[in-house]
Design a protein around this nucleic acid. Structure first.
Lengths: 332, 332
DNA sequence: TTGAAAGCGCTAACAC
DNA sequence: GTGTTAGCGCTTTCAA
């Protein structure tokens, strides 16, 4: 019935109970077909009776792999990452593995250590939007364990990567604004060291070739950051505000309402990384939807393949989609 | 310099390189003092030279514990849980352990299996707002591994629990509305099976004793749910809407704006579980702040103590705080 | 189809 | 202060 004696139930206990060898029990556990049905049944019975669960540690040691994949994100509370992690985890689970999640709390200095620690437990690692220095990234990549980097490219480093086409997304935003007749826009920039931000800047400077003049203002990535930057943004003198993401945009929107500045009549506003609430603000936000779950799934598939030793070809950036809503209009 | 031969660098390789025994290397690794400084230095040098990392699996097996704690949440993308997980993880890490996170995707049927699986890897488990049947919860609790349940109480089950005082929070909301002069309110209910929702209902019926009449409408927990429920909520004929949480409230607010119903002039509105955006909506939301991070930290401390075999006393529900803002006023 | 036994890499008695 | 060695619980040749 229950576990006997002290300590955990081991495979040996099951073997004794079923009057079989540990090898046989192991075979049943691992679905090896060459076991007599009667014996297999006895073993399964014993497993159930004793409430036996194989020790993950012992299995890992004997097999030489843990069946666990690691993910390191800068901030789990950011929907961008939690959606990615959810999709990644669900997809990985389909192939029978587990996921160990760590959060670096936006601390570039901690990233390296956490990743290193994660690698002791995991058979492979997904690094999301890492902010660590190139050298650290290179060192990790050469540790031997399969490593996949999401949303950060570095041509010099020969990393395996998956990412989203931020560049195209920002070009779409700029194109939309330009076609409406805007000529001077203000960009509220995101975190330094973020590849996503660098890509946005690169696209903005591309847009300048089309006659769009862009003023860049340091800002951040939260609603508070946006709220606090509103006055500076207005002072910069554009006809449209391009926010780093939807949180910043909603913060701006809130402050603009307090200041009596009408959106989009007095000034247009765009977000990025569409969040659920973007549809529900007043006015609803023109923004760019990025395939967060798609990225998570792609990462999972890619990492699983990497671990199977398959060589990965170049990976295209996932496409994004501009959603035009009420927060943008022709300049007055 | 680098790892030699095939496969991983083991403690034996380090011992050979440093001309010491594996025991000594193990001692250095585990900060046991009784090692000659010179030898210890040689060992550390060898570790660095070889790029040695102890195998987590081997350590777990030999030590009999994994140094890993599990957390199971219904939805990582919900800030309620991601904040909790972040605080839990950070606190646990201070005591040298790691955290394995799993997401049940709001599927009560999957919870039991995931928890069971988690227990094979972890020395202890935190179950957040579990929706599984009582019997499953009871079975898990009797598995032997330390188990802590957050935000679900069950007096018959003798569980170790930590939670937030939802009851008090909803009473505060109702008291606030009653004092403003409201007599008929509509409650937009959250997920069935959620203890948080049951506690809210319990508080609402308590408030009826004070003459507040409450109509309960099934709704959900997302912005979409709130948006979709607005017409029904208006039809229910109250002077105030009490939403299950801030997402529902913001969804309602958005739809009410579309319908031309002014908040709070035509109808008052309250949220719950204050999110960042609550301050920034128009009007800003009257809501209840719950100590998400505090709960995560409390859970971590409690679980660590449980694992040290310390018997836990009863745990008080963490206090919450009503934040009155522009979305509530006296009925017209 | 089944079982005995040799590891997997590390820790922790126990001896020296 | 240091080393030898017997496990930890499982998988996996290799024989039978």
């Amino acid at each position: 019935m229950a576990a006997k004696g002290r300590g955990r139930v081991t495979i040996g206990d099951v073997a004794r109970e079923a009057d079989a060898s540990v090898t046989t029990v192991s075979r049943v556990l691992n679905d090896v077909r060459t076991v007599d049905p009667t014996l297999a049944h006895r073993v399964r019975q014993a497993i159930a009776d004793l409430g036996y669960r194989p020790s993950a540690a012992a299995q890992s040691l004997a097999r030489g792999r843990s069946g666990t994949l690691g993910v390191l994100v800068p901030d789990l509370a950011n929907p961008h990452f939690s959606d990615l992690v959810k999709a990644f985890t669900a997809t990985v689970r389909e192939s029978g593995a587990r996921v160990l999640v760590m959060d670096s709390d936006e601390d570039p200095a901690a990233e390296r250590d956490l990743a290193e620690d994660l690698l002791r437990y995991a058979d492979g690692l997904l690094l999301c939007a890492p902010r660590m220095p190139r050298a650290d990234l290179a060192a990790l990549a050469h540790r031997g364990t399969p490593l996949l980097v999401a949303n950060r490219r570095d041509p010099g480093l020969a990393l395996h990567t998956v990412d989203v086409d931020f560049h195209q997304g920002v070009l779409a935003v700029c194109g939309h604004l330009a076609q409406l007749g805007h000529r001077r826009v203000v960009y509220l920039a995101g975190p330094e060291g973020s590849w996503a931000n660098r890509e946005r800047l690169r696209a903005l400077s591309g847009a300048e070739a089309f006659g769009l003049h862009v003023t860049v203002l340091a800002c951040g990535s939260t609603t508070d950051d946006g709220h606090a930057a509103a006055e500076r943004a207005l002072a910069a003198g554009g006809t449209a505000l391009v926010a780093y993401n939807d949180f910043v945009a909603l913060g701006l929107l809130s402050r603009l309402a307090e200041l009596g500045v009408r959106v989009p009549d007095a000034i247009s506003l765009t977000g990025f990384d569409e969040i659920d609430l973007a549809r529900f603000s007043s006015p609803p936000l023109t923004t760019v939807a990025v395939p967060r779950s798609g990225l998570g799934r792609a990462a999972a598939r890619s990492l699983v393949r990497l671990m199977d030793g398959e060589v990965e070809g170049a990976f295209d950036a996932l496409p994004v989609e501009l959603h035009v809503r009420g927060s943008t209009s022709a300049p007055s």
